[in-house]
Design a binder for these strands. Structure first.
Length: 1036
RNA sequence: GGGCCUAUAGCUCAGCUGGUUAGAGCGCACGCCUGAUAAGCGUGAGGUCAGUAGUUCAAGUCUACUUAGGCCCA
């Protein structure tokens, strides 16, 4: 016996039960252990930080990340899924600073690095519990008991190994990096911090004259930061842009052609036009002498780069390599020197005339000085948005800092090659956003001047020698003051010195820690402490078969993974990646706490249940598109899909319990099944094929849609059509067939859907399958994914049934137009379709539409008229611009005559203003327009016509159907059980009473009545209006 | 400021290499059906396919620009 099924849709409670069941019985672990060790499917989990709360977007990533491995596990692969935590980095430090009331690096150092780092370590677990509960609730299966943690000594040791390997390949070097820098706090800011502090400011910019060497002319260059002019080393033009040499007043200038009139006014004459490329390497005289002698490399000439625009300014940009990302890059490209006449406090240095003056204060002084020297062309006011420190409101400066880089430019070709091996979903990201990014890859600045992170494993000697340590053992071997239980963090490592292999001197570690993106990109090997342990395991699980994160990770994790795997192994770190769109609110706006439109994920899960939310994300739209999330949308899918599935299951259980039916006692007798059952099994097996193919190819939405369509047809066609087969008292062959077919459909379907909606499918499985078969697997998630039985797939059958559905739909429409309700039988229906159905299907149509006769007819002329339209796709290229006239002529043709001509000659002649034109059959589209006496409907190539005149016999039958329906309604309203037998009485209408009498045998049988009498008034009563006849019915 | 993505019915989304009446689901109105169903079926109202210009016999679809939103980078 099955457990009785609640028809309530209270999914959340049932999900909690399943969650508990999984936990108590280690279902997740079993799903891994039961599979063959050498048959692996690898998934890498991108680590979240547990010092931030999960938000609704994490539901999307988790449900996608969860579903694919569940599917592969059922396909027979061992699918190891290790959870991970990202624990290092500036966000953690900032959180702790806030907590401790600290502000800036000075205060941190005063507070003490050791206690600070300790706090950081605690802080990262702030929301761990919440994350775990969240993961359990959405049904995210990953090994949470033994996760990888990026701050773990073993993890760091693996990262060190990687860094040392890179160091030994000579791909790790020191250089300058331009960072947004707060001169007051003495610290660079992350882009996230910079973004918080943009403000519109009005400043004076400068257009400066740079004297061309050996030529009586000047370059006009524009800058918004005059304080960088003393550090000028080069100019830059766009090689593609046209420049002019123009005479204006006493001066001759070079500047961009399109900006000349804006800058010089109307009064100038063009002496020469030339592309920027021809200005390359032209030398000029330095504005200031400060740098002369300080630099050995050749400087003070014009460079080319396409970052220069002609949006404003002069089209010539002044370059100070210490103060701008582009400046720095271009100067490196041209091998120009480097000077930085601004100190760490943001003041100009001794070398200049304004020593100790803060940069922003120096601006007017420098402008004045240039004006006096006749080098200032103009100093226009300029309004722009400029970043300020979010802490202290000081204007930020872009400032070169000593920094460590990984030479990604050296492995660019390899990166591109490896990226080509990745299956990006959608492919456009791999080619576009990501492909372009690595096409222009820059060296990776990996050092951070902070405290809480993986320490950079480079030791430096006074003699200049540098050494990279690759393991704890190596450190201990080279050091005489390394504690036994050394923790690989600041400040503990800062005091550990090693002996210089070159000079024997003391080597100290450099102060930097590394970018935490390097940590997360190292997880393929660091999660297993490779190469110190688990060598074989790593090799088996690299590269990953599948990863998935949101689109913002393109230059984050997606990049760091492939960057590191390319550097170390020259392989991509993953084979398939689904890139997910962001979750937005109802109006397509970004969700944020400040806007108050953020959806609390736990609340949403509580309200709708995990399956409903999962389903929404699978079904709603392609995963990479932005998802608008709101309650109503989730409810829709829940009702339509989960509700329908549940009800179909409840239907089966209801009747199987009445009949004490157990599928294990029977065999499915395929050969002798009725067509309806064969159709369902064919649909089912086609579905298996398509779901398997789609999920194997990571096509999520397509899978969801096909599952949804199947449930719809299962419930609203198969079950609805087959309902009566379950009603009879005896266990007939037909009833067994129906049970077996429905059981097979349901029990197979839940396996197909299990990866997507793991809770409801297991709930159903526990009752439906485990109560049918004592030897069934413990959980649906331990089952093998179904394989299609090709012998059951009958495409012809599915095609026929499809036509039945279309005809039925048209028939209903025709009834509607004729205003004849469904209970009123109709005598005749004619159908024209591309192919003819045999008697069985016609019977379904007849029954479904309550029509006595259904016949196929090719010649429908009696009931219809034709109209003609050009078949544009074919006729368009042939007819060209005549096509509009053809359309007009066709519309005015006599349909019947034209049809006849076309049928007879195979062609149709029409006359146009330009002469006669001959159309063949393929050139025109013929459609049906009119009706006469019959109600007709048409769609695609199917036409139906129903007879609208009714005979007295048909009308009487209509009454019988009405009466039965009313009695059934009364049974239901008055709480009779399905099997109860009743007595029926009728009163108040002779016509109805006589109809009842004439048809009492049929009616009694259907409504389970022992007797039908008139006059004797017993039981529940209700007055009805049946086709205009008032009558009172009684049931008892 | 630069690159990329998105914009189609009140809402959520389809719309293949351009083909003329732009579809589906939800919601709404009316009607039908229903002894599993919180469902189902039909009809109707509801669209300047974000805007402008262009290519073409033909543009939701291709091109350019603009607007709004998003992501990444400055």
């Amino acid at each position: 016996m099955y457990e009785k099924v609640e028809t309530s849709l209270n999914f959340t409670q049932r999900e909690k039960n399943i969650e508990k069941f999984w936990q108590e019985n280690n279902i997740f672990q079993k799903s891994i252990d039961q599979r063959e060790k050498n048959n692996m499917f690898t998934f890498y989990d991108g680590p979240p930080t547990a010092n931030g709360k999960p938000h609704i977007g994490h539901v999307l990533t988790r449900v996608i990340k969860d579903m694919i491995p569940r599917f592969q596990a059922m396909k027979g692969y061992q699918t190891v899924r290790k959870a991970g935590w990202d624990t290092h980095g500036l966000p953690v430090e900032l959180e702790v600073e806030k907590l401790l009331g600290l502000d800036g690096k000075e205060q941190i150092e005063k507070y003490g690095i050791e206690p600070f780092v300790k706090k950081c370590k605690e802080s990262v677990w702030k929301y761990k519990g919440m994350w775990e509960e969240f993961s359990r609730t959405v049904g995210y299966w990953a090994d949470m008991d033994d996760p990888y943690v990026t701050y773990d000594n073993k993890y760091i040791e693996s990262v060190w190994w990687a860094l040392k390997t890179i160091w030994e390949k000579d791909l790790l070097y020191q250089g300058h990096k331009i960072v947004p820098y707060c001169p007051r706090c003495g610290t660079p800011l992350s882009s996230h911090e910079v973004a918080q502090g943009y403000k519109d400011v009005k400043e004076r910019s400068a257009i400066v004259r740079f004297k061309v060497k050996g030529e009586n002319a000047y370059f006009l260059a524009w800058t918004t930061t005059p304080w960088t002019l003393p550090s000028n080393l080069a100019l830059c033009v766009n090689p593609e842009v046209m420049y002019v040499k123009a005479k204006s007043g006493d001066y001759t200038y070079y500047l961009a052609e399109t900006l000349a009139s804006k800058v010089l006014g109307e009064d100038f004459s063009v002496l020469e036009k030339l592309p920027g490329k021809e200005l390359e390497y032209k030398e000029y005289e330095p504005l200031y002498p400060f740098a002369i002698g300080k630099i050995k490399k050749k400087s003070f000439y014009v460079t080319c780069d396409d970052y220069v625009t002609t949006a404003d300014g002069t089209g010539i940009v002044h370059m100070a390599p210490a103060f701008g990302e582009d400046d720095s890059r271009v100067c490196r490209k041209y091998d120009i020197g480097f000077v930085q006449f601004v100190d760490a406090k943001g003041c100009l240095t001794e070398e200049t005339d304004w020593a100790g003056v803060f940069v922003k204060k120096a601006d007017p002084l420098i402008l004045k000085d240039l004006a006096e020297k006749g080098l200032l062309f103009d100093a226009p006011n300029f309004e722009h948005s400029y970043p300020h420190c979010w802490r202290c409101d000081t204007p930020l400066i872009y400032y070169a800092r000593e920094s460590w880089f990984i030479r990604m430019t050296a492995v660019r070709e390899k990166l591109i090659r490896n990226n080509d091996k990745v299956n990006w979903i959608p492919p456009t990201i791999g080619k576009g956003r990501f492909g372009d990014w690595i096409e222009h890859v820059q060296d990776w600045g990996i050092s951070r001047n902070r405290y809480w992170g993986t320490p950079l494993n480079i030791w430096e000697c006074e003699c200049g020698h540098q050494h990279s340590i690759g393991s704890i053992d190596e450190l201990k071997a080279m050091s005489d003051n390394c504690p036994d239980n050394i923790e690989l963090h600041r400040p503990f490592l800062d005091t550990v010195t090693i002996k210089c292999p070159k000079c024997g001197g003391k080597m100290h570690r450099v102060p930097e820690v590394i970018d935490c993106w390097f940590d997360s990109g190292a997880m393929p090997f660091a999660q297993w402490h490779y190469p110190f342990e688990n060598k074989e395991l790593f090799e088996k699980t690299f590269p990953a078969d599948f990863i998935s994160e949101a689109v913002d990770q393109t230059r984050g994790w997606f990049y760091s993974l492939i960057a590191i795997s390319t550097l170390l192994f020259d392989k991509p770190a993953y084979k398939n990646v689904i890139v997910l769109g962001h979750v937005q609110d109802k109006n397509g706006q970004k969700m944020s706490k400040s806007k108050g439109n953020a959806v609390e994920p736990m609340e949403a899960l509580q309200k709708h249940g995990a399956d409903a939310i999962r389903w929404y994300f699978y079904e709603n739209s392609a995963p990479w598109l932005p998802n608008r999330f709101h309650d109503d949308a989730v409810q829709e899918g829940q009702r339509k899909f989960l509700g329908t599935l549940w009800n179909t299951y409840a239907f089966y259980i209801l009747y199987a319990n009445i009949d004490k039916f157990n599928p294990s006692k029977y065999e499915l007798d395929y050969e002798n099944l009725p067509v309806m059952d064969k159709w369902l099994l064919s649909r089912l097996n086609s579905l298996i094929k398509s779901v398997d193919a789609n999920l194997s190819a990571y096509r999520v939405t397509e899978t969801a849609k096909s599952l949804q369509d199947f449930v719809d047809e299962l419930s609203n066609w198969y079950v609805r059509r087959s309902r009566e087969r379950f009603w009879g008292k005896d266990m007939t062959e037909d009833k067994i067939n129906a049970y077996m077919t429905l059981y097979m459909a349901l029990s197979t379907f839940i396996k197909l859907a299990a990866p997507m909606i793991p809770f409801i499918t297991d709930t159903i499985y526990q009752n439906l399958v485990r109560n049918s078969y004592t030897d069934a697997n413990e959980s649906v998630h331990l089952c093998d994914f179904p394989t299609a039985n090709e012998a059951y797939i009958d495409e012809e059958l599915e095609k026929n049934m499809q036509l039945v559905l279309e005809i039925v739909s048209l028939g209903r429409a025709a009834r509607n137009t004729a205003n004849i309700k469904n209970r009123q039988p109709i005598g005749q229906m004619f159908v024209k379709a591309p192919f003819v159905l045999d008697a069985f299907y016609k019977a379904i149509v007849a029954d479904e539409l309550n029509i006595k006769n259904v016949d196929f007819k090719d010649d429908m002329e009696k009931y219809l008229a034709y109209s003609f339209k050009p078949q544009f796709k074919i006729l368009g290229p042939k007819a060209g611009r005549q096509i509009n006239e053809i359309k007009k002529v066709l519309a005015s043709l006599n349909g019947h005559a034209a049809k006849e001509e076309l049928d007879k000659n195979g062609s149709l002649k029409i006359s146009l203003s330009g002469g006669a034109f001959t159309l063949v059959r393929e050139d025109v589209e013929i459609s049906v327009t009119q009706t006469e006496g019959f109600a007709t409907e048409t769609y695609n190539k199917v036409v139906v016509a129903i007879e609208t005149t009714l005979t007295p016999e048909l009308i009487e039958e209509g009454f019988v159907r009405e009466i039965i329906s009313k009695i059934q309604t009364m049974r239901k309203e008055n709480g009779f059980e399905v099997t109860d037998r009743i007595k029926v009485c009728v009163d108040g209408n002779e016509k109805i009473a006589s109809i009842l009498k004439r048809n009492c045998t049929d009616i009694q049988k259907i409504v389970l009545a022992d007797s039908i009498e008139s006059g004797k008034l017993e039981g529940f009563s209700k007055e009805w209006n049946i086709n205009g006849e008032k009558v009172i019915l009684y049931v008892k």
